[in-house]
């Protein structure tokens, strides 16, 4: 079977429309992931043992189970409880919550990485708890974890095709539909693969640059 250039250029606009959904889901999901992850990390440090342990096991559970059953859960079970949401919204929420359990670990390690002397100096200066976190610990912790967090943006981008299981017309789903219609899968799916490589390889090289720069400090 020969590669059909005409067909390729015909499906490209549709693919790019699918890519828009892919990027939307990735970016919005990422916003959820980086904020919710910080919430988990901070809750795990509360003196309240029940809360800390509950958060620990909940995040462990979410981290250890695949996205696809989680997507089913959010998309099919929540409506049964009276909470109906569209497939794209369900996808964004699931992606975001799933990856928040990863970013929580990243924040946790970043906070643990701040030297003990910083906590002690903050105590010696009598800074209130909120100031210790906002002015001293978090700025240092977040700085350390930025490159690692960047990696999760790429990871989420690459997991976004899974949203097709709840019928989000993201990139891969679009390609599949095109292929099913014309019975030519080679071009659309190969193009999707190339698009993924074209976006994520430069992105990961960029993140590695970030890592080197931050490591130099």
């Amino acid at each position: 079977m020969e590669w059909d250039w005409q067909y390729s250029s015909d499906v490209l606009p549709d693919l790019l429309r699918g890519l828009r959904y892919t990027l939307t889901a990735t970016l919005l999901g990422y916003v959820i992931a980086v904020t919710l992850g910080l919430v988990w990390a901070l809750l795990r440090r509360t003196p309240n043992v029940v809360v800390a342990q509950a958060v620990r096991w909940a995040t462990e559970f979410i981290r250890c189970t695949p996205l696809i059953p989680q997507l089913f859960f959010v998309y099919y079970v929540l409506p049964a409880w009276g909470l109906t949401i569209g497939s794209l919204t369900a996808g964004i929420i699931t992606l975001g919550v799933h990856y928040s359990t990863y970013t929580a670990e990243v924040y946790r390690a970043g906070i643990a990485d701040v030297p003990r002397g910083q906590w002690e100096a903050a105590t010696a200066l009598n800074l209130p708890r909120s100031r210790v976190w906002l002015d001293v610990i978090l700025p240092q912790a977040v700085r350390r974890v930025i490159p690692t967090l960047g990696n999760y943006l790429i990871a989420m981008f690459k997991d976004s095709p899974l949203l097709l299981v709840i019928n989000v017309t993201e990139l891969l789903n679009t390609a599949y539909r095109e292929g099913a219609e014309s019975l030519r899968f080679l071009e659309p799916i190969t193009m999707v693969g190339l698009l993924f490589v074209l976006i994520s390889v430069p992105a990961s090289i960029f993140v590695r640059r970030l890592e080197k720069r931050y490591a130099a400090h």
Binding site: P115, G117, Q118, E120, A121, A124, P139, Q140
Partner: peptide
């Protein structure tokens, strides 16, 4: 402190 513990940020 022995190690100064200035806030690097």
């Amino acid at each position: 402190f022995q190690q100064f513990n200035l806030f690097p940020n």
